[in-house]
């Protein structure tokens, strides 16, 4: 296992989960931005941002681009925690509709708040055990 890549083994499963979120978040935000923009523009732009981050993470983990993957997952972690906290405190003023990361991803079974931790664990685990 000296040349473990990020996109195989458990990483293959992780890429698939990231891929689902990449498609779900990007498609959802594009539909909302184009059909009901005025209802909650900030929320929809944030959903699009999450979609782009998921797309980048999916590609980077699949292609064994460890540094890019780490950066994407870190942005994802900060994003879900920041947007999650903001949405809880916001009281419906800015977030007049939900984002993917609202309330720490409650609309997606809280997977959005768990996923970056799993991603970090996987990426860092691989790098610190390169000789096992």
């Amino acid at each position: 296992m000296s040349t473990r890549t990020t996109g195989t083994g458990f990483g293959r499963v992780l890429v698939f989960v990231y891929g689902i979120f990449a498609v779900a978040a990007t498609a959802r935000s594009l539909v909302q931005l184009t059909t009901q923009y005025d209802r909650a523009p900030v929320a929809y732009w944030l959903s699009l941002l999450s979609g782009v981050v998921y797309c980048l993470a999916t590609w980077a983990i699949a292609k064994d681009r460890r540094q890019v993957a780490l950066a994407a997952v870190l942005v994802e972690l900060v994003g879900v925690l920041a947007v999650g906290t903001w949405s809880v405190l916001d009281d419906g003023r800015v977030f007049t509709d939900a984002t993917v990361w609202s309330d720490f991803g409650v609309g997606y079974g809280f997977i959005p708040v768990v996923l970056p931790f799993v991603g970090l664990w996987w990426l860092l685990r691989g790098s610190s055990h390169q000789s096992d």
Binding site: G9, F10, G11, R12, V13, F16
Partner: peptide, 10 residues
């Protein structure tokens, strides 16, 4: 198992 787990997620 990894491949099977991908199908499980789907």
């Amino acid at each position: 198992r990894s491949g099977t787990a991908v199908l499980l997620v789907a």
